[in-house]
């Protein structure tokens, strides 16, 4: 699939890196759930490059493709009154343009 874009940039993030999901509104369709926006997580895998669903939703070709990452969130970082084990996690696939490196400012 990466042949669709000859430039094929390298992924910005790597497995093991701390990231934070952007806390912003979307102008239309997007695949970033609200409950994860602004939350810190850890990249566990770069899953590949895919057509941008925010463009596909409007019948555009979805190019350039976006890197997709499996990001692991601690449940206790998502829900302040989480009732399960502190070891519980949630994995979600998040596109690169919704992720930013976790900095002192974004870390809570």
């Amino acid at each position: 699939m990466s042949s669709l874009n000859p430039e094929s940039p390298a992924p910005v993030f790597a497995a093991g890196q701390s990231v934070t999901v952007a806390s912003r509104a979307s102008l239309g369709h997007c695949r970033t759930p609200f409950y994860l926006r602004g939350r810190p997580g850890l990249v566990v895998e770069v899953t590949g490059r895919f057509r941008d669903p925010e463009l596909l939703a409007y019948h555009k070709p979805g190019l350039p493709q976006r890197y997709l990452y499996r990001v692991r969130f601690r449940q206790t970082d998502l829900w302040p009154d989480y009732g399960g084990s502190a070891a519980d996690n949630l994995d979600a696939d998040i596109f690169e343009h919704w992720l930013q490196p976790t900095t002192e400012e974004t870390a809570r």
């Binding site: 695949r31 449940q75 399960g84 519980d88 996690n89 949630l90 994995d91 979600a92 998040i94």
Partner: peptide
């Protein structure tokens, strides 16, 4: 068991 990790997989994108 409380000792096991529960890992929820939210199918948010292409996988």
């Amino acid at each position: 068991s409380d000792k096991a990790e529960v890992r929820v997989l939210d199918s948010t994108a292409d996988m």
